[in-house]
Amino acid sequence: MDKFEQAFNQIIEDDLKVEPRDWMPEKYRQTNIRQISQHAHSEIIGMQPEGNWLLRAPSLRSKQVLLAKIQDEAGHGLYLYSVAETLGISRQEMNEQLHNQTAKYSSIFNYPTVTWADMGAVGWLVDGAAIVNQVSLQRTSYGPYARAMVRICKEESFHQRQGYEIMCQMAFGTAAQKEMAQDALNRFWEPALMMFGPHDADSVHKGQSMAWKIKRESNDHLRQRFIDRTVPQAEYLGLTIPDKGLKFNEETGHYETSPFNWDEFWNVVNGNGPCNQERLDHHKKAHNDNRWVREAAEAYAEKTEAQVA
């Protein structure tokens, strides 16, 4: 073991942060690139299901809030892309990996948002689950990723509240609104729980990621935290969690759920969700239709910036 590797191991052991110019094992670098770019793609693809309702938001307030939220997601994608770039992959490569499907993004965004109540459910459940995960990642061992998480968590604190506010409005609104809210909860509950990934026993990347402190808490652990927080929030709304097997275990102090439909999860992960194709096509179209704009910006910069450098 050379002095660089020793230094790396020491950083991990002492709970310090690995920085871009430090030596790191190639697999540590690749694991971080995979996870961070997947995280970034999720932010960016996640703009679409919410963008689906932006133009139809029912009030000036909700429209501005939703636009500011989607804008944050673009910003968070950018923070994360630039974090990944410190590990030696370019934005262009990440974009290509997204388009040729070698990079993934969170499967939750492959579900359609069919009613306005879904803007509530997405904020409350999807952002809620993401926040649980991201709070944990504030302690991840790669410095730039940890710092980005701190910033993202701070900015996203309004996202979940925005979603819950919509749920309140609808759950306590007209019968039609309440029905819409329940329907949204029914559709997003289980997919949101599966956002945390496979059970610990079935998780492929778990061991090494935990040892390197890239991942700080296990999937099941984080999922349980989310469930325990969310069930009482649903009760307040007077909505029913769509799981007949859900019960509170007095001994453990935790809620227990029925087994999830992992077949559906893997089917969506493998490209057969309701909107996988649409999300990717949308992203490609915006990118390809606007190639001429980027070429113009590049040509203009070549003509005007050269004199200065």
Partner: peptide, 29 residues
């Protein structure tokens, strides 16, 4: 894709405080 560059960004929060590195952006000019 190409032609855009990475720029490091420094923000001063209030007068009297130092500029602090906050991250980077991409841009053509």
């Amino acid at each position: 894709e190409k032609g855009d560059k990475v720029w490091e960004v420094f923000v001063q929060k209030k007068s009297g405080l130092p500029f602090k590195h906050v991250g980077s952006v991409r841009a053509y000019d």
